[in-house]
């Protein structure tokens, strides 16, 4: 069974690093760099996991997550959020918006891999 992750990140270098990591883990990685149409892209791609940046052009990650959680079939989709702002207020906001895991940039690659594995395992159990 092929696992698909959708990476929404506008920094091409970061996106490339994550793609490298997850591809080696056996994930099928799709990337998208714009916030504006992100919700639609997620709906269309039907990924097993979403990695979401916060500071995105067009629409920020918090709003995308909020809108996503309003959709019926997106309640349980695991979303790993990455932010470079790293203020405690952001973590709160993200939790209220329904985030599955929240990580601050810069992250260690091991952390990201662990988080992706955990989230996938939780989602598979359901």
């Amino acid at each position: 069974m092929s696992r698909k992750v959708l990476l929404i990140e506008d920094e091409p270098n970061i996106a490339e690093a994550i793609r490298f990591l997850l591809t080696r883990e056996g994930w099928q990685v799709e990337t998208h760099g714009d916030g504006m149409d992100a919700v639609q892209v997620i709906q269309d791609a039907k990924p097993d996991l979403v990695i979401l940046d916060v500071m995105l052009p067009g629409k920020n990650g918090m709003d995308i997550l909020r809108d996503l959680r309003e959709l019926e079939d997106m309640q349980n989709l695991p979303v790993l959020m990455l932010t470079a702002r790293g203020q405690s207020r952001d973590r709160e906001m993200a939790e209220n918006a329904g985030v599955s895991r929240f990580m601050t940039k810069p992250f260690s690659n091991a952390e990201v891999l662990t988080a992706v594995r955990d989230l996938h395992a939780q989602a598979s159990r359901l």
Binding site: E11, I14, A17, A84, T104, K105, P106, F107, S108
Partner: peptide
């Protein structure tokens, strides 16, 4: 943080 993320 953004460039540091890439670097790390």
């Amino acid at each position: 943080r953004t460039p540091m993320t890439s670097i790390r």
